[in-house]
Amino acid sequence: MKRRLFLIAAASLTLPSLALAHGPTRQKVIVTAEVAADPADVWAAIGNFQDMSWHPAVHSSTGEGGNDIDATRRLVLGAEGGPTIDEVLYKYSAEKMSYSYRITEVKVEVLPVTNYSSHLTVKPRDGGGSLVEWRGAFYRGYPNNDPPEELNDAAAIAAVTGVYQAGLDALVERFGAPGS
């Protein structure tokens, strides 16, 4: 009986610490923009996985495989010799005007995320124009408990949201907002 009580007491002391010992939670971000242009025109600008020149943070984009599954690209950010992000395409549909890709390599100092995947799509907008949706799922840049501030969930969400917003803002600037 004493042994049983001891085991129950030991378990009750251990279980709360196990509940706190979980890792990070997968984060999700969705950013959308409405543009005045026809979906086909917007897709013509952003639908080539190998060409991300439409995004203001991307200095250059090179890769192999075109828009085929497992195509790769390397984004150079900012300027010649800037930081890079390597990505692979895992889903592509010109008919649905969408593609999905994963980051295969990036330094957390560049983008504070791990296990990142993203989906970009263009849809017709009610009333004309297009709705562009960019969504991603990822873990913070620090996979263990007690991350430093620059690698925590909030930093990861802010960084990804900033990337998406900058790209979509560039599309609105290029194609105009509906009704403007």
Rank of each mutant, 00 (worst) to 15 (best):
P56R: 00
P56S: 01
P56F: 11
P56K: 00
A57L: 13
A57V: 12
V58P: 01
V58E: 11
H59W: 13
H59Q: 13
S61I: 06
S61G: 04
T62E: 09
G63C: 09
G63R: 07
G63V: 15
E64I: 15
G65D: 08
G65E: 01
G66D: 02
N67R: 04
N67C: 02
N67G: 03
N67V: 05
D68K: 11
I69R: 13
I69P: 10
A71E: 01
A71T: 02
A71M: 06
T72F: 05
L75W: 05
L75Y: 03
L75Q: 00
L75H: 01
V76A: 11
V76E: 07
L77H: 06
L77G: 10
L77N: 04
L77E: 14
L77R: 02
G78F: 15
G78H: 12
G78W: 11
A79R: 12
E80G: 11
E80D: 09
E80Y: 10
E80S: 14
G81H: 06
G81S: 09
G82I: 04
G82D: 04
P83Q: 09
P83K: 14
P83D: 09
T84M: 14
T84S: 12
T84V: 13
I85V: 14
I85R: 02
D86C: 02
D86F: 03
D86Y: 02
E87S: 08
L89N: 04
L89R: 10
L89W: 10
Y90A: 08
K91G: 14
K91L: 15
K91W: 08
Y92L: 05
Y92Q: 08
Y92T: 14
Y92W: 12
Y92G: 06
S93Q: 09
S93Y: 14
A94W: 00
A94V: 01
E95I: 03
E95N: 11
K96R: 15
M97I: 07
S98V: 15
Y99V: 03
S100T: 11
Y101W: 09
Y101S: 05
R102I: 06
R102P: 09
R102F: 04
R102G: 03
R102K: 08
I103N: 04
I103T: 13
I103H: 05
T104M: 00
T104H: 00
E105Q: 08
E105N: 13
E105D: 10
E105F: 03
E105K: 12
V106P: 07
V106D: 10
K107T: 12
K107S: 13
E109D: 15
E109A: 15
L111P: 00
P112N: 03
P112V: 11
T114Y: 01
T114R: 14
Y116E: 02
S117A: 07
H119Q: 14
L120D: 05
L120E: 02
T121W: 05
T121F: 02
T121E: 15
V122L: 11
V122H: 04
K123H: 06
K123E: 15
P124E: 07
P124Q: 00
P124I: 08
R125I: 15
R125E: 01
D126R: 08
D126F: 05
D126P: 01
G127N: 04
G128V: 05
G128D: 04
G128L: 05
G128I: 08
G128W: 02
G129D: 12
G129F: 10
S130G: 12
S130F: 11
L131T: 12
V132D: 05
V132N: 09
V132L: 07
E133G: 13
